[in-house]
Design a protein around this nucleic acid. Structure first.
Lengths: 151, 151
DNA sequence: GATATAATTGAAAATAATTTTCACTTAGCG
DNA sequence: CGCTAAGTGAAAATTATTTTCAATTATATC
């Protein structure tokens, strides 16, 4: 199994420009406000609520409005680039979306997110389908703890 | 692996009286309103939002208030008897809490919940702890699909 | 580059979910 | 039974999110 994946600065920059390109490809205009939302979330190692994105985004683009944060998240979510993250204490924060068979490890204190691979649940999924009669579409495997910084 | 566990009527009755006993043990009074909330959620095979519990609970105890639904859920949650269930489209519904190493299989259409056992994630958890430096406290393994009734 | 125009913006209002307040009721001990 | 602190529902307050709308602006086209 690959270890958890700590994002490098290099990669988060690529993520930022990739998201901007996806928005443009889709026909959405690239505005200062959208850039600010993308910058903040793509380069954050932690999950962020709309209010946190708003606050941090204003450092980049001072006239940013909270409404635009919501609207931009909606578009990024629609493009599969970001997703809400669900935690025992709530699900109001966003992260760069999981890709392929990635799973999550989350810090309960600071919201830090690690992505890892290495557990194939498709066999279990098929077995469950057979035994339950469900048609299974998706799954979540998430671990919750405290990161080394927060200990 | 044991198959998913379909609750019998027998068992849900036991669950209802167990929850009532736990509330009483803890020193909480047993009122008609609390009984209604417990009845509805303990005997439901699907996840229910506070508003749904309120609506169904009024069939049992007509003066039930929505505020009391919230307050009773808070107490049941504190006692570890119920928990919020998180799904891609939201996390505003409650279910009887997982026990031991149970995991969830959820119907995206009707909210039906199946509990299953059979996957031990403790080894993966330990491995992740070592590689990430996190102290892991908890995990979720959840499958999402469409149940046989909803197909 | 200038310009036309439809997309996008932020502020304010509206809505929805949840929590708090408070005067009244009641479960359950003695 | 009667007492009393716990619990109640209605209404108000709070919080998160969405909608409305007039003003602004990104970008395709000249």
């Amino acid at each position: 199994m690959a270890g958890p994946h700590i994002s490098s600065e290099e990669e988060t920059k690529e993520r930022t420009s990739g998201w901007i390109a996806s928005l443009a490809d889709r026909g959405y205009r690239i505005t200062g406000s959208r850039r600010a939302v993308v910058d903040v979330l793509a380069e954050s190692g932690t999950s962020l609520s709309p209010a946190e994105i708003y606050e941090q985004g204003r450092a980049v683009h001072k006239q940013l409005g909270l409404v635009t944060v919501y609207r931009t998240l909606e578009k990024l979510e629609e493009l599969g680039l970001v997703q809400r993250v669900h935690r025992p204490d709530g699900c109001h924060a966003y992260i760069p979306a999981l890709r392929g068979h990635e799973h999550l490890l989350l810090c309960e204190q600071c919201g830090r997110v690690e992505y890892f691979r290495g557990d194939d649940l498709s066999e279990l999924s098929r077995r469950l389908e057979g035994e339950s009669g469900y048609t299974i579409h998706d799954h979540w495997l998430q671990f919750f703890g405290v990161c080394s910084q927060c200990q």
